[in-house]
Nucleic acid binder design. Sequence first.
RNA 1: UCCACCGUAGCUCAAUUGGCAGAGCAGCCGGCUGUUAACCGGCUGGUUCCUGGUUCGAGUCCAGGCGGUGGAGCCA
Length: 447
Amino acid sequence: MPPIINISEAKDYVGQIVTVRGWIKRRTGKGKINFLRVRDGSGIFQAVAFRPTLGDEKFTQVKKLTTESSVILTGEIRADARAPGVPGGYEMDLRDIEIVQLAEPYPIAPKEHGVEFLLDHRHLWLRSDRQWAIQRVRATVIRAIRDWLDEHDFLNVDTPILTPAAGEGTTTLFEIDYHGQPAYLAQTGQLYNEANIFAFGKVYCFGPTFRAEKSKTRRHLQEFWMVEPEIAFCRLDELLEIEEQFVSYIVQRTLKERADELKLLERDTSKLENVTPSFPRIRYDDAVAMINEAAARGVTVPPKNEPLPPMEWGDDFGAPHETYIASRFDKPVFVTHYPTEAKAFYMEPDPDRPEVCLSADLLAPEGYGEITGGSERMSDPDRLLEAIRKHGLPEDAFDWYLDLRKYGSVPHSGFGLGVERTVAWITGVKNVREAIAFPRVLGRVRP
RNA sequence: UCCACCGUAGCUCAAUUGGCAGAGCAGCCGGCUGUUAACCGGCUGGUUCCUGGUUCGAGUCCAGGCGGUGGAGCCA
């Protein structure tokens, strides 16, 4: 019996007879020769069916193959520069074929399709080259996230998904019935992370988070994955150094391990190679000044080349503002010291200037928006209680959170990184919905 | 919640002023020894999103509804 191999290993079996199990992406016929584009999950190559070597009976079977039919193929591997695929350059000279199932007519054609149709067929769309490549990049991004944190002494302590109260905004929670009591799907694990650092020093949680925002944009999902590191005895400056090391590692490792996939996606990787420490830092004040100066000059921003609107100090950035700021730098850029009013209640105000807080958002290049958001957290119990009251939050729900400031409070900081936005940026896909296998976007919960 | 755009074959789209609903791809049959979304010939395929209205006549015009996409606000 010939060995069963993965398509990705084909280059190691040149001249040998092997077996590959997979699916027919496409069959093209040309008289006595048929080309079968085959994928098996590990890669894509072609099997060449030639009537004189395969025999009339088996060749007739090959000619019946429909798109997505499942097959077990046996043949000799050979190198041929004409052979397409991922990684490409190797093909199988077919000697035997077993059809596991002849597939029904497949709805997804090698043509353009509309978004609605593709999302309705997401369970099949994942088989397409681009979607396959994106999910493989995502897996590497996640591996890189965990490896970097584990190697830098962060302890993975996961936080609950069913929670009793809001982490951030109160209007964007999914409410569920918890045995007769209202409970909510977590928007963030941060408050629990803050409890965990007092036990473990440096921690991270990693999992899905949920936001019932009425957002229908290329950067939003109702359910998305977020990694949130939190560090005791950490000030804002130190936090930014951690973030730039972390993000650079994720990008560089993905470039190294997923070169074939990024090539298939036609990603211009030159802009990613540049993502190394350190990243530029600008203050919110300076960002506003840059934006208003550019708006006065009539600068336009992609993708629609609309004029950049001016903004008032105190407002949060709109998408065009983020895009403009990011476009001024060739690396991700930190924007720090946002107005305290515009940010979450737990962020530490700047002691020299309380109207701004010790926060930092990291804006990705090329219009991918905010990929991390972080800050130094408020460590004084009295001022935290004041902030909770000022934001109109239910005091009794935060009693345990206030406790953390009573028993050995320390300065501490943390941030969250959105996995889908990071994957969208690295792969160059325009919409975050392609960065997760089964996206949950507004108005859609199927498949 | 608000703004803009869209809804015709399995898919992507045409259809002139309101006048016989079409093409490419997919599928099926046949041909061809190097295809890269092959090519050539033939065949099959329709509740024009729904409801109502105007009209001799509506895919096209009007009203209401449903669904989708992009964006705003908010956010990672």
